[in-house]
């Protein structure tokens, strides 16, 4: 968490000092500000308690969490160990499965995000027959339980030769199948989210661009995308997380053999079938969390006010 605390606090560039003073004055200065701080802190604290328990237990000897609460470990005598991390980092297939997770997750994030952005642009700024109904149907498909799609889709994939081990124009065909599947599963939400953000972009922007003679492709890449960076960044994070943490879809389409297994499969397999050494999962959770958190921190700087601010004036 040192990364988080070391980062400078967000000072929204567009918010002037005057506005801040006024706000403080109105709420009788420090009292309410302190109250606000306390409220936010309390809520945050309540939220991290479960994760904190996991973190502390991940450093305790196996079996200790069954006999005493994790908070007791914070008082002497200290008895911490790296055994769980040693077991997780020593897992024989860890490195290739990290690699596989990236192989699965990166395209399965880029493709649906891009495809959704194209569609969301059309749904929010173009007029065509049946637009609203198609859009609604797409949102409604968010409710399709993924499990009902597995058998028909895998049958299709097998017929087309899109299974692990097969070569598809030089590509590992199993990966291709899982990218396509994740794209389909992720699109309803992605389109829904992006269309909502695109729709509220100021109309005069588009009008002035049109007057300047810019086509829709130019408008999309030069205006819509840059202005929707916070929305796209959050979509990228969610899609990345869903795919990264997914276990079932990967097992269905690419399988769990070491050559293609993603990190989730490898880490789950550390624990015995009946739950022996379940403490390994505590460390595994943090090992697997590292990459999504890096993605989150990397994209966090796009969540700032004022991306829109400069352009609205024009």
């Amino acid at each position: 968490m040192s990364v988080a605390t070391a980062a400078p606090p967000a000072t929204p560039p567009a918010r002037s000092k005057a506005a801040r003073t006024r706000w403080s004055q109105r709420l009788s200065a420090n009292v309410s500000s302190a109250g606000l701080n306390v409220a936010v802190l309390a809520l945050t604290l309540a939220w991290i308690v479960p994760t904190l328990g996991l973190l502390i237990n991940s450093f305790r000897p196996g079996g200790a969490f069954n006999t005493s609460g994790w908070w007791t470990a914070l008082a002497p005598p200290f008895n911490f160990t790296l055994d769980s991390y040693r077991a997780v980092l020593g897992a024989s297939d860890l490195a290739p499965s990290f690699f596989n997770s990236f192989m699965i997750t990166i395209p399965a994030t880029i493709i649906p995000t891009a495809v959704a952005a194209f569609a969301a642009y059309a749904f929010s700024w173009m007029r065509f027959w049946g637009r609203d109904w198609i859009f609604l149907a797409l949102v409604g498909l968010l409710a399709v339980p993924l499990q009902v799609t597995f058998i028909p889709l895998l049958t299709l994939a097998v017929h087309m030769g899109l299974t692990s081990g097969n070569n598809f124009f030089g590509l590992n065909a199993g990966f291709l199948a899982v990218w396509i599947a994740h794209t389909g599963y992720g699109l309803p939400f992605a389109i829904y989210l992006l269309a909502n953000f695109f729709r509220v972009l100021p109309q005069d922007l588009f009008e002035s661009a049109e007057i300047d003679g810019a086509g829709p492709v130019t408008v999309f890449f030069r205006l819509v995308l840059p202005l929707s960076v916070p929305a796209i960044a959050s979509l990228v994070i969610f899609q990345f997380l869903w795919v990264w943490n997914d276990l079932l879809v990967a097992l269905i389409y690419v399988g769990g053999t070491p050559e293609v297994a993603p990190l989730t499969v490898t880490l789950t397999n550390l624990v015995g079938g009946l739950g022996q050494h379940i403490e390994y999962l505590t460390a595994a959770a943090f090992v697997s969390m590292v990459v999504p958190l890096i993605v989150f921190f990397a994209l966090r700087r796009y969540f700032v006010r004022g991306i829109l601010a400069g352009s609205v004036k024009g």
Binding site: I151, L154, T155, A157, V158, T163, G256, P258, N269
Partner: peptide
């Protein structure tokens, strides 16, 4: 070797799909 805790689901799906 491929391990899964959801053997019923994975096996039935793979067999039904011809894989």
């Amino acid at each position: 070797f491929e391990a899964t805790r959801d053997l019923d689901a994975i096996l039935q799906t793979k067999i039904a799909a011809g894989n």
